[in-house]
Amino acid sequence: MVRVCIASGKGGVGKSVICANLGVVLSERGYRVSLVDADIEGPTLGLLFGYEHTQPTLHDYLSGNASAGDVVKSLSPTLSAVFGSVQLNALLKELELERLSELTSMLEQSSDLVLVDSPPGLEEDTKAAVRASEEVLVVLNPDIPSVAGALKVRILARREGRHILGVVANRTGGEYDIPPEELEAILEEEVLGTVRDDPLVRSSLVEGIPVVSAHPESPAAVDIRRLADRLVEKLIPPRR
């Protein structure tokens, strides 16, 4: 129904964590969600769910060696995912990035929401992820380099004719955080949610279980569920 690219400009701000956990929360509410790890050179979405190696991967699809049906992995009755390959990473040139849009369009037909996790930076691979989506959800940390990254995502989205859904401020709670109202003013976008910095996010990574499942009462899990509420309001009409 709708494809949302999760982007940041700056790396390491928490795109993959937000992507995985939103997928879990929304699928548990009965929405059909598909996740795509479009971080071609550094896929980590599989790791967040405890998969070190999955076969075949997005790389096989993009190089024409596997069909869409082969690469979609079902994680629950309402959650599916296409993971990347952790081993093959230097072969970006051999992949047909345009096929990413075909894949997300196909997934969109059987999903209420497709979440596309994108690479850091604003190179061709990120552009392909933005093009493969209608909407862009910008993730940032409440600091200056992240804000600059978010502004660059806005520039890219505008060039590609894509709409920005809003902003998620991740790892908040520090004394020197840029407050949400200031983020909204400088970015001219709505802050859809803030997710507190929470050590349980890191431990859930080690456990291979997204924090909303592993530690549902942790601050980050509470915040991500609230963010999911806001996303549903923005995106998804009442359930089937």
């Binding site: 409440p142 200056i144 380099p145 407050p179 200031e182």
Partner: peptide, 10 residues
């Protein structure tokens, strides 16, 4: 806000 808590560079 800027006088009290100027933002940091990450």
């Amino acid at each position: 806000w800027l006088l009290r808590n100027p933002p940091r560079r990450g």
